[in-house]
């Protein structure tokens, strides 16, 4: 049961920008901050997959299509966060947090936010 959901690796999303969820980057010094950067997305699967997952839900277990959906939406939110940080001229994003909300059944709103900083 080896799962390789992400076709895009994180390395391709973060183009030279260090994205971490710690307050500081170990071994580096923060010299400047550029404010809060964020990225958000709402995604859904098509209705055929929704019906299939509804049937899968009756027998229980993992719902792969939704795992996949959330993985894709996190990558999209994260790539928006990174492009926001790049536009501000930062070279790292620290203290990244994720927030999820269920807008309607089967759709996921993903929100990633963090602080854009310059490190040395």
């Amino acid at each position: 049961m080896n799962i390789n959901l992400s076709a895009i690796s994180m390395v391709n999303i973060v183009q030279g920008i260090m994205v971490v969820n710690t307050e500081t980057i170990p071994g580096k010094v923060i010299t400047d901050t550029y404010g809060v950067v964020s990225g958000s997305t709402v995604r859904a699967k098509h209705v055929g997959k929704d019906i299939l997952q509804g049937l899968k839900n009756i027998v229980g277990g993992e719902l792969r299509a939704y795992t996949n959906l959330l993985e894709e939406s996190r990558q999209e939110a994260m790539s928006r966060l990174v492009s926001d940080a790049m536009a501000r001229g930062a070279n790292a994003v620290v203290n990244v947090r994720f927030a999820t909300s269920a807008v309607t059944p089967g759709a996921a709103e993903l929100f990633a936010y963090g602080t854009a900083v310059k490190v040395e």
């Binding site: 390395v11 260090m18 710690t22 795992t67 959330l70 996190r74 994720f98």
Partner: peptide
């Protein structure tokens, strides 16, 4: 350093 995540529904 870099962020890593994973999820399961």
């Amino acid at each position: 350093a870099g962020i890593v995540w994973s999820g399961a529904v």
